[in-house]
Design a protein around this nucleic acid. Structure first.
Length: 851
RNA sequence: GCCCGCUUGGUGGAACAGGUAGACACGACGGACUUAAAAUCCGUUGGCUUUGCGGCCUUGCCGGUUCGAGUCCGGCAGCGGGCACCA
């Protein structure tokens, strides 16, 4: 028994030494670069376990790469603009800047106690004018290169508060504070032309080999390329035509109505003389702007009184509707309905009693049953004139060809992706550097006047945008004519801030947004780590930014993130007392596997759910670090689940990690006795130690490379279990004494990226090493020495395991077969059976097939 | 509603390219140490069955491909993420 491990002293000590020595500073000039990055956090004020998980994952990779000889860039910063700061301002009467800076200070202290290998000299905060100054420059360059433009966009409008609401502030169609029914309002706003890059953003996904497939699929679906056609439906009795977009020109003979979006210009025109339609359009505006609200609303529409002519059947007239399920943003803002073969059209047709004409047979030629639901599968065209008998694919081609001949349509490729609206009617964001002049129009703020800084003296007493009702801020002289003009009072979407921060880290002190040469040498990010919830928006916007910046001449790269790891959520059980009230985890005691309150009454343990305030199941990282130390928390959070899955936090699991930390500490003392040179001869046990050690090095390295940290830890535990078992034997075996010490030293290096403080402390105070583990090169595994000479083969009869064989590597197949047949259990299973064949899979299995 | 995932013992998970399901842990149970408890250490632990040996069943559910399926294919169910102004 040696001295117990004192993490309270040890952890801050090593954090201080690493900082003092500058162990984690990145070097712009050194070769072999590696950029490891965790997603920029929002400074909410309190660190949560999701952060701890994220940073622990990144730290293992960063420390491992450093030990592998890489020059690692591992920076940190804050996504410091955003809505919560304004909410806090209203609630607590605290200025957003003060609130944000306080949060950053307290979170920074918490993060420092995690011992993550960050280069803090590169820290940024997006709310800092020295950051957003460059962002404003980028915006102006986007404007110059036709990547930013103004158009009308739709926002959620709270008519009582006279304020624009975010989607999350709209609950069941009502404003979260006022409770008033939210309406849609059109405002002139700034947009970025992400759609200029639709094709490239889609095609380049294929090259992102180190991204999870599911993220690539999600982006692919989001961009949503579809090949279809524009089709014109002439309006009966008028000269205009309704142009629709469709992906199914093959089903045109099944058309039974056409639908315009409520926002369609023609809908508006017709509504002037149609009060019912006008009323309906107003009702549609009561729907929020979210896709979910639109999709789940009951399909409803109004007949315009007009009929349109089917392109292929000039004599057939179908009604023209305006309906809530057609979007102005997508395609042409108009569709034709083929209810027999489309779910949404089907629902609409049923509701308004419109014709449902089947135009597709099943692949076997029979008619689909469309009495209850539409048929959306493959088949052959029917009831379709010149298309009859064709497959869907053939009919699409043929229909488009005919439309072109008739001058009533043309093939067209459509993307679901929309341009990115970046204007926000809020205070706590980056000001858009634009001035509106009655004489000169839209005038960019001259570069010499950047940054346009947020005014500090704002009030949140009035609803709406504080910049808008600030007494003087928006008044400015026009840079062009000098007359009095107005500043843009909208600020930028915070996704704008986080779409280029990873570039700023490369040269955080640059006078320009970033230094081209240095940035190109660090970029792309080798490994990006963050939550799956960012799979589409943040990651897609960042990919767009790289392309847009390239177009503006900033750099010559297209993809920001070469490797991507998306981590799962951190969950925890929920607890309720006998009355069903939620309880906090710290008020629960476990006895014999059952849960009780501290007062002894029984507790119902609910399912594990994402840690959140509303579920009362948050575990505070600070408290855990106080009680167990950060290495224990890191070990537990890395060992229990693979990173991409949800993680279940449990006090018991944490305790297991704590025990292991202490076992390693005491094992270190048991094997500390030193033999300076490897003995000439190794005993059998010493050879086993050597072999398992090499196996472990290889397995741990491979598992870290693949981000299977839980498996890496399992291998480390296997090795330490083995070493522990041999400790009593070492006194009588000098070569084993050497082997145990040698092996354990390697084990300490292998676990160092996971529990870095423990590793340094063993290295220094038990092994009396002079250098630091962080400066030691990663151990090298020898494949030869890790080889087994014997192996175990499974023997099956008809696919069922009947026994095993231990054979030496390279034994002849015939010999293996005959050994297999000699197994008693095999003989028994083969009684009264004829052998049909024997399958031998080298080094794996023998399967005897018999009947 | 639309898009994308996930589902293996009491629990978290392992099984690399279809080849011995349950590595490594947690919990539980039994034992050692202790006046006792905690801590620590040792052993057992998927289920059913048999006095041992063994046998049968088992990867959310139903079906298929294969000598062989947790892994591949089709269908279903449950849970979760995203849906463009939360970040």
């Amino acid at each position: 028994m040696g001295t117990p491990y004192n993490f309270r002293e040890t952890e801050p000590k090593w954090q201080g030494i690493w900082e003092e020595k500058g162990s984690f500073l990145a070097n712009d000039d050194a070769p072999k670069k590696c950029y490891i990055l965790e997603m920029l956090p929002y400074p909410s004020g309190r660190l949560h376990m999701g952060h701890v998980r994220n940073y622990a994952l990144g730290d293992v990779v960063a420390r491992y790469k450093r030990a592998m000889g890489y020059n690692v860039l591992h920076p940190f910063g804050w996504d410091a603009f955003g809505l919560p700061a304004e909410n806090a301002a209203i609630k607590n009467k605290m200025h957003p800047a003060v609130w944000t800076h306080q949060n950053i200070a307290s979170m920074k202290a918490q993060i420092k106690s995690l011992g993550i290998s960050y280069d803090w000299t590169r820290e940024i905060a997006t709310c800092d004018p020295s950051y957003y100054k460059h962002q404003q420059k980028i915006f102006l360059d986007f404007l110059k290169h036709d990547l930013a433009y103004r158009k009308e966009g739709v926002v959620n409008w709270d008519p009582v508060e006279q304020t624009v609401l975010a989607n999350e502030q709209v609950i069941d169609g009502k404003g979260w504070r006022s409770g008033a029914t939210v309406t849609r309002k059109r405002l002139s706003q700034w947009f970025l032309k992400i759609t200029d890059f639709s094709e490239d953003l889609l095609a380049s996904l294929e090259g992102l080999k180190r991204w999870p497939d599911k993220v690539r699929t999600m982006q692919e679906k989001w961009i949503g390329k579809s090949v279809g056609a524009h089709v014109d439906f002439p309006i009966e009795g008028r000269s205009e035509k309704i142009r629709v977009f469709t992906t199914r020109p093959d089903t045109l003979f099944g058309a039974s109505f056409c639908v315009l979006a409520p926002d369609h210009p023609f809908s508006k025109e017709l509504s002037e003389s149609n009060p019912a339609l006008k009323k309906f359009i107003l009702e549609c505006q009561a729907l929020g702007t979210s896709q979910k609200a639109i999709d789940t609303a009951e399909k409803a529409g109004v007949f315009t009184g007009l009929k349109v002519r089917c392109p292929f059947e000039p004599d057939r007239l179908i009604p023209l509707y305006v309906a809530n399920y057609v979007l102005m943003d997508y395609g042409t803002g108009a569709i034709y309905g083929c209810p027999a073969h489309d779910q949404r059209d089907y629902e609409f047709a049923k509701k308004y009693d419109l014709l449902i004409i089947p135009v597709l047979s099943l692949p076997n030629g029979s008619l689909p049953d469309i009495s209850k639901e539409p048929y959306e599968g493959e088949g052959y065209l029917i009831n379709s004139g010149f298309l009859d008998g064709l497959t869907v694919h053939e009919a699409k081609k043929s229909a488009i060809q005919k439309l072109e001949e008739l001058h009533l349509g043309s093939p067209v490729t459509q993307f679901r992706l929309k341009d990115w609206g970046v204007s926000r009617q809020r205070y706590w964001g980056c000001p858009i550097p634009i001035i509106y002049c009655d004489f000169c129009g839209v005038v960019p703020v001259p570069e010499k006047d950047l940054p346009v800084v947020l005014p500090e003296d704002v009030s949140f007493d009035k609803p709406g945008n504080p910049l808008e009702h600030h007494p003087t801020w928006k008044q400015v002289d026009c840079p062009s004519c000098g007359k009095l003009a107005r500043r843009e009072t909208d600020t930028l979407d915070t996704f704008f801030d986080s779409s280029w921060y990873f570039l700023r880290y490369c040269s955080p002190k640059a006078k320009t947004p970033f230094d081209k040469e240095v940035t190109e040498s660090w970029m792309p990010v080798d490994q990006y780590i963050g939550g799956v919830e960012h799979a589409v928006l943040h990651l897609l916007y960042s990919r767009f930014f790289m392309r847009a910046l390239k177009k503006c001449g900033y750099l010559n790269l297209k993809e920001p993130f070469e490797g991507l790891l998306t981590q799962g959520m951190v969950c925890h059980e929920t607890y309720k007392d006998s009355e069903g009230n939620l309880l906090y985890p710290e008020d629960i005691i476990f006895k014999q596997g059952k849960a009780f309150t501290t007062k002894g009454s029984p507790v119902t343990v609910g399912p594990s759910e994402k840690m959140s305030k509303s579920k009362n199941n948050i575990v505070d990282p600070d408290a855990i670090i106080q009680e167990y130390g950060v290495d224990t928390a890191r070990l537990f959070i890395l060992s229990d689940s693979p990173p991409e899955r949800d993680f279940d936090w449990s006090e018991a699991g944490l305790h297991g990690a704590w025990r292991y930390v202490n076992r390693l500490w005491s094992l270190a003392q048991d094997v500390a006795e030193f033999l300076p040179k490897k003995p000439e001869r190794l005993s059998e046990k010493a050879q086993e130690v050597e072999k398992l050690t090499h196996k472990t090095i290889l397995a741990v390295s491979q598992n870290i490379e693949r981000y299977h940290f839980n498996k890496a830890i399992a291998h480390i535990r296997e090795l330490s279990n083995f070493l522990e078992g041999l400790v009593p034997d070492q006194k009588s075996d000098a070569s084993l004494l050497w082997a145990l010490r040698w092996s354990f030293e390697i084990l300490v290096q292998l676990i160092a990226p996971i529990t870095p403080h423990l590793a340094e402390e063993i290295w220094h105070s038990i092994f009396k090493k002079t250098g630091l583990v962080v400066d030691a090169p990663w151990p090298e595994g020898d494949k030869e020495l890790a080889q087994d000479s014997l192996m175990v083969l499974a023997v099956q009869v008809n696919g069922k395991l009947r026994g095993t064989l231990e054979v030496s590597k390279g034994m002849e197949e015939e010999e293996i077969k005959s050994l297999a047949f000699e197994l008693e259990t095999v003989k028994l299973a083969l009684v009264d059976k004829n052998i049909k064949k024997v399958i031998v899979v080298p080094e794996r299995i023998i399967n005897i097939v018999a009947v």
